[in-house]
Design a protein around this nucleic acid. Structure first.
Lengths: 249, 249
DNA sequence: TATATCAATGTAGTTTTTACACTTAATAAA
DNA sequence: TTTATTAAGTGTAAAAACTACATTGATATA
């Protein structure tokens, strides 16, 4: 076993059959790596996030993002998927890495770096199981409670990213049921961007993307006349992505 | 010392004076956390990145981003600043966290998660010391060499982010000397976006931002007529940032 | 059958973006 | 000193995108 100080780091290596084998980066510190998920949902009341009540000290009883630790042989994306599944039973949804948070004392228990992910799920599809099986609860994004550690900061970043994503990806469709009305879509975008949008302009911009299928079916819940249901055309969207997607609302 | 399995994680805690003190998250794995820097520069030849030749196995002799390991009591931003300073002697420059890379075998020596940062520096200001004191070397972004590990992928992401940043921040000014001509600025943006821009439209868009100071001085190097030098007005820019910056080129 | 409610739809005015070419200033060469 | 050369500097018209805005249509309920 030989120590060798390079310009970069001290490394430990052995020589086997004339081949140098590095065994570790000896001088480097190892740290805990957490993954926290900002899970957005949408229903008729607006844009929501899913939180859990922390059940141990410190900060017991406070609201928290859903999180967990990265395992040794797991990549971050997989950890985020695993953690979300464990708390919600949900998988196969849109997730995106947000940012790594590393303030020294962000977690008072132990030095922990956290990589935040945000996810988009559709509440109606999952709500029943979620509330029954897990201690998670939906909160309106607009008046989210005080969260532990730096989770409020993560949430703010996630909202900013989500707003930006609306112009880049058809994120809206991730948050809605498979069939939805134009009004629902409009209200979703209004909730995300937290501004009012002109209905006619919105519809023509959405239509100009050419990624919606107008169904023959109507939703008769919302009005006497009934409003047509739409579905998202994944194929057209995938084709479109190649030439970049831009949507200015 | 008591073990307690919560819904989230196994934790270890002690009870002191009726207060529960958590000591660690026992079940979680610790990992090495690296920071890699994509350092962009610009000169008359175009957009460049700074690379170093790795001087130990594996991948000895291959080109690599500048990187290092996070220390125990250091946050990621600080590590990025430290590492950049160590390799280039440069500090006080624009840096931004890019993404965390965590493929299991991305570093064959040992499991390492890397958080990539990108930085913008102005070559002319720093080149001499940089080349003399360190083994770093500038490469044209357009034909960068094959890099170790997943560094090419980091570079691709960084370029994408840099392109987006042009519409959000006046990144250009970070890459130019204090005084610069409109032509230099134009060529920089052309290099970043890798597309041709119309000179007159570019100038009027830049001017409409109202963050440039036209100096009385001319650069006589580039032409017989000479071209006016400009400087970046940080104060106006800072004021402007409050109402969001948008620049569509 | 009258009324109330929300869905659906098009256009004109304004702003923004694009495409495009000639004149000017300074210097070097004749 | 005249002429030639080179890149700098400048404006406008056409096209495209965006905004603001109001009436009619379908149906359930009174």
């Amino acid at each position: 076993m030989i120590y060798y100080e390079t310009f970069t780091e001290v490394v430990i290596f052995t020589v086997k059959k004339n081949k140098i084998m590095l065994n570790s980066y000896s001088s480097a510190d190892k740290v805990l790596l957490a993954v926290d998920c900002i899970i957005f949902g949408f229903d008729k009341e607006g844009l929501k996030i899913l939180l859990i009540k922390r059940d141990f000290e410190p900060e017991k009883g406070k609201w928290s993002l859903i999180g967990g630790f990265l395992k040794k042989d797991e990549k971050l994306d997989s950890a985020a998927i695993r953690i979300l599944d464990r708390y919600t039973g949900i998988h196969d949804i849109y997730m995106e890495q947000l940012h790594a948070y590393s303030d020294i004392d962000r977690d008072p228990v132990e030095r922990t770096i956290s990589v935040a992910y945000f996810a988009l799920i559709n509440i109606e599809n999952h709500n029943a199981e979620l509330i029954q099986n897990y201690e998670a609860q939906w909160f309106s994004v607009a008046n989210a409670p005080k969260l532990i550690f730096d989770h409020n900061s993560m949430l703010r970043h996630a909202i900013r990213r989500l707003r930006y994503r609306t112009s880049t990806k058809p994120v809206g469709f991730e948050l809605l049921p498979e069939k939805f009305t134009m009004r629902q879509l409009l209200e979703l975008y209004e909730a995300i961007l937290s501004k009012e949008l002109d209905k006619r302009n919105f519809i023509s911009k959405i239509n100009s993307l050419d990624i919606l299928i107008k169904l023959d079916e109507k939703d008769m819940m919302s009005s006497r006349k009934g409003s047509y249901l739409y579905a998202f055309d994944k194929e057209k969207y995938d084709a479109k992505l190649l030439n970049d997607f831009v949507l200015n609302l």
